[in-house]
Design a binder for these strands. Structure first.
Length: 493
DNA sequence: AAAAAAT
């Protein structure tokens, strides 16, 4: 049994908040990290998903801010003393909310800044003065450069999801932010996954760090049952619906690798009457927050999402995670399935493996350090075709449906393309064969010789286009004016 | 083969 929070001799306002939140005994990462952070040491902390890393750094951090008065000589009453950086906006919101709860009975102020929202309210909060600032990198840089906040008094920096913060996409922004901070400070890095390369890189940002590793890093929570199904790319939607029905899954995250795929899947599921919503980076921030909120409240059953939701999001009692696509990075798999099985609860994960996932699967096996058993998944439509029992009823729902749809639906469907009249005669024109290579005009052969990236367009057409562009910019086209159709550009070789 | 983070 781990020690209780009450043994920590936290300052009264913190202890009160902790008691009110019903925290009793610490998790392993909390038991190990909190005393070390209380000593003011740099920390690299690794622990499985859903084991309370946020509290593991927030509580001792707040305790230290309370115990050690600001060394500030600045006239500002509330200089930023602690900075917490996160890789997604939703995660920034979540961590800020948690910190606010812990700091509820203290005088310490905190706020969160992130992109996609109006700068003004954030600026007002910053100007009011905060000791703890939670942020995503891009927007924080905006605020720094607009002089909305001054970070030269920062005593503590936390990189949550540290391996992501240190990866190539974030590193330039991160380095710029760190360049605004005092060299003399405490740095805390936390994540469920640390590759050996990232560990090495990370240690260059730490001074005499204490490494805390609860279980092996990259380990998945033992309470999550992981299944892998061999599914054809085109059968994935059907497979998803089938598993949802057969296992009577309640809420679930459904991870898709691309934003477009995510939007499409969500639309398809909604069309089929499944209660789902999409969360990805092409949505407005309002929509993103709304989608997450409705999932949190349980109004939505399926959160169809990209890796924007892979890390850190703490939503209680989500029973299952689907990897509709197997992630490219094995680390992301660990984070994705970590959305379930949180705080010791049990969880289920289903991953669809198709032909092109061989490489991702091998990466995953390497990271998990074990062979992954991929089971075949018998689809109901096949069962029916091969003489199964198509008439079974489950919760009033048929277990299979005719892939061609109902008779009514078929009648409504447009006839095949060939039977339709041409929508636009232009597209029905006979195919024009391209010039044989030896017949190519001299200019084209030259531009091909000139090297890759040169578009095969004659100098004549190029000039003509420039003039046309200038002309278009200068003269509005009169209504009904006749325009000569410009030839299409040659396809790039 | 992607996503995320600034507009």
């Amino acid at each position: 049994m781990n020690p209780a929070f009450s043994e920590l001799s936290l300052a009264e306002p913190l202890a009160r908040a902790v008691a009110e939140l019903g925290f009793s005994s610490m998790t392993p990462i909390q038991a190990q990290a909190i005393p070390v952070v209380l000593q003011g040491r740099d920390v690299m902390g690794a622990a499985q998903t859903g084991t309370g890393k946020t509290a593991a750094f927030s509580l001792p951090l707040l305790q230290r801010l309370l115990k050690h008065a600001s060394s500030s000589t600045s006239p500002a009453r509330h200089p930023v003393r602690a900075l917490v950086l996160l890789p997604t906006r939703e995660l920034a919101v979540q961590v800020a909310q948690q910190i606010e709860l812990y700091a509820k009975y203290t005088e310490l102020r905190s706020t969160v800044v992130f992109g996609g929202m109006d700068m003004k309210p954030q600026t007002a909060e910053l100007k009011r003065g905060v000791e703890v600032l939670v942020a995503t990198p891009g927007r924080l840089l905006d605020h720094i450069e607009a002089k909305n906040c001054v970070l030269n008094q920062v005593e503590y920096v936390v990189l949550d999801e540290a391996d992501r913060m240190l990866d190539i996409g974030f590193l330039p922004d991160l380095q710029r932010i760190l360049s605004y901070l005092p060299k003399q400070r405490t740095t805390l890095l936390f994540s469920a996954t640390f590759s050996t390369e990232i560990k090495r890189l990370a240690s260059s940002y730490l001074q005499d760090p204490v490494t805390i590793e609860v279980a092996r890093s990259n380990a998945t929570a033992a309470t999550i049952e992981q299944r892998f199904y061999r599914v054809e790319e085109n059968d994935k939607i059907q497979a998803l619906k089938q598993v949802l029905r057969e296992r009577t899954i309640g809420q679930a995250f459904v991870f898709v690798n691309s934003k477009l795929g995510c939007a499409r899947l969500a639309r398809s599921l909604e069309h089929d009457g499944l209660n789902s919503t999409a969360l990805h980076g092409d949505k407005s921030q309002d929509e993103r927050l709304k989608a997450l909120d409705s999932f949190k409240k349980g109004e939505v059953q399926l959160l169809v999402c990209t890796d924007v939701a892979a890390r850190g999001l703490d939503i209680k009692d989500v029973p299952a995670v689907f990897n509709f696509d197997l992630p490219f990075n094995a680390e992301d798999y660990v984070h994705r399935i970590g959305r379930t099985g949180r705080a010791g609860a049990s969880g289920l994960s289903f991953s669809f493996v198709c032909g092109r996932d061989t490489k991702s699967l091998a990466e995953l096996e390497k990271l998990l350090g074990k062979k992954v058993e991929v089971e075949p998944l018998e689809l109901e439509s096949d069962r029916r075709r091969f003489g199964g029992d198509p008439g079974r009823i489950n919760d009033g729902q048929r277990l299979w449906h005719d892939p061609r749809g109902s008779a009514e639906a078929r009648a409504l469907r447009p006839p095949p393309r060939a039977a339709r009249p041409a929508a636009d005669p232009f597209f029905e024109q006979p195919y024009q064969p391209k010039l044989a290579p030896e017949a190519k005009p001299e200019w084209e052969q030259q531009s091909a010789k000139a090297g890759a990236g040169t578009r095969s367009v004659s100098p004549f057409i190029r000039t003509k286009r420039k003039v046309a562009a200038l002309f278009k910019a200068a003269t509005p086209v009169a209504a009904g004016a006749e325009c000569e159709r410009q030839p299409d550009p040659e396809p790039v070789a």
